[in-house]
Design a protein around this nucleic acid. Structure first.
Length: 206
DNA sequence: TATACGATCACCT
DNA sequence: GGTGATCGTATAC
């Protein structure tokens, strides 16, 4: 399987978010492959987007988002969870896609152990959950996903456009348009998106 | 140095 | 529907 290349990520962030649906996130742990197809993602775009961590400028934390596309921006949140993003757009412009949910494929037995849950839909149906299931933490912050041995992205089958829906981003409470921007994309009929099962409230993309 | 809070989750009613 | 856990980060003193 081919890996996604830097040119895939050096594009408009919303386009990257949409095109990441169906691609395979792969993590190697103890020589074993843990993987799943991406079914939910969110775009965070530049300093003008108040929901984006870079809205407060360039700091040690946000440094990676200003760097080259295709690198991993991994942050620690709520004292106990990690979230995985992929840096997008040209180097120097801070933007990234948050990977919010996967459909588990390989290494599911290992994911059970790392997650300690009973329902397969709970393994990777949220940004914090998928980082637990795939043993992703800040030690991997800043790595190049296009050239790394233990965390990378492989080409998967594309998702048909009529299966893709959009919504506002989850957990965003900021003033202005950022809270209303429909920059979450997900596979509408997947049981593995966060919060599923849910009623479809947003129309599919054209 | 001190403090408030978050791109979440699990468990409660 | 609601809330506590738990700590790095940004920001204020």
């Amino acid at each position: 399987m081919g890996r996604l290349s830097p040119s895939f990520f050096a594009r408009d962030t919303l386009a990257v978010a949409r095109d990441l649906l169906g691609q395979r996130l792969v993590r190697i742990v103890n020589g074993r492959r843990l993987s799943g197809r991406i079914v939910e993602a969110e775009a965070y775009v530049g300093e003008d987007d108040l929901a984006c961590h870079a809205s407060r400028g360039r700091t040690r934390r946000t440094e990676v988002m200003y760097g080259p596309p295709g690198h991993a921006y991994i942050y620690f949140i709520y004292g106990m969870y990690h979230c995985l993003n992929v840096v997008t757009e040209a180097e120097g412009f801070p933007a990234a896609v948050l990977v919010r949910a996967l459909e588990p494929e390989e290494g599911i037995a290992d994911m059970w152990a790392y997650r300690g849950c009973q329902d397969e839909r709970e393994l990777t149906s949220g940004p914090g959950k998928l980082c637990m299931a795939l043993q992703i933490d800040r030690r991997l912050n800043g790595i190049d996903l296009c050239d790394h041995g233990e965390l990378f992205l492989e080409e998967g089958e594309p998702i048909a456009p009529h299966r893709i829906a959009t919504s506002t981003r989850i957990g965003i409470r900021v003033p202005g348009w950022a809270a209303e921007a429909p920059w979450r994309v997900y596979v509408a009929d997947s049981p593995f998106v966060s919060g599923a099962p849910r009623r479809a409230t947003h129309r599919a993309m054209r």
